[in-house]
Design a protein around this nucleic acid. Structure first.
Lengths: 157, 157
DNA sequence: CGCATTTACTTCATGCTTAAAATATTTGCA
DNA sequence: TGCAAATATTTTAAGCATGAAGTAAATGCG
């Protein structure tokens, strides 16, 4: 029979790897449910929701480049998603006065209304999935994640 | 001027939504770095790494259906990734005696060696990115994530 | 046995994702 | 002014992801 290493201290790197694996699993599990719910209830996808969420915070819209920066995805990626959302009438590209290369994207009235319904449902789904965390526990973990983000940013330079 | 709501208690659902947004941000940030590193150092991708990681735990290989179950991705998805890894000589499909529909996939010697180098680098990257968490803090968060997973599983039925 | 159902897997259509190349326009400066 | 460099965006090629449809083989039961 094997020795029981379970209660011996693991090297720090193993402990952190274990954390990452759990982290990823939880994240993927929640994301999968969100995708499925968005698909079933609103015939849309997470990337489309993300674009609309970003635009909903800027009444006068965002330039394509700013939009891809906010979402932290590539320019080319945003082009396709915006194309499709435009076809659905949820947003429009407007010319930017004085710069014929650029365009400003903003939600239409219909897009804003649609997004508000999606956002309310989204918040309820998250509240349900994370109900195991009390508001205090949620705040505590949020704080730790903010530390993590800060340390990840710092290492970039 | 607007009232300052910042220090009033937020509804639980807002607190949890905030947690989810931080969670997603951290997860995407770490994943992006992993993808970039895998690409630069090993000319591979996270899905390929995931497939090899899964197979590395089963010396005699896995059937395609079991592989997609373990990875929690669709069957059709696994087909393509396995196709490409096979072309690279990192794994092989073997016939399953007594069932001509099925095939068993396992790492080749070259695939196992390659994976072991990738896994060592992967662990070091994670250790670096999560270094802001002490082993104790890491264990603590891992425990909370396990609670979360358990509660997510339970709600499925 | 015969044939409907189930199982294992691949293919297909569509969309998301990236990096890199291409296009168009603006800016800066010799 | 003229033109090289920078900027804003789209296009392209390749891979990942899904759900659904298709193919082939195995199973089960009347």
């Amino acid at each position: 029979m094997e020795l029981d290493y379970k209660h011996l201290p693991e090297p720090a790197s193993k402990e952190r790897l274990r954390l990452w694996l759990r982290f990823l699993k939880a994240s993927r599990s929640i994301e999968a449910t969100l995708r499925e719910n968005l698909r079933q209830e609103f015939r849309t996808t997470l990337p489309r929701f993300d674009v609309m969420a970003a635009l909903s915070r800027f009444e006068s819209g965002l330039k394509m480049s700013k939009l891809s920066e906010v979402l932290r995805v590539s320019n080319g990626n945003v082009t396709g998603i915006v194309d499709r959302l435009s076809e659905d009438g949820f947003l429009i590209r407007e010319p930017v006065p004085g710069d014929r290369r650029a365009s400003r994207v903003r939600l239409t009235k219909s897009g804003l209304e649609e997004f508000e319904r999606q956002a309310a449902a989204h918040e309820a789904w998250i509240n349900d999935m994370l109900s195991v965390f009390s508001p205090d526990a949620a705040r505590d973990i949020t704080n730790r994640l903010e530390q993590l983000e800060a340390s990840l940013q710092k290492d970039k330079f």
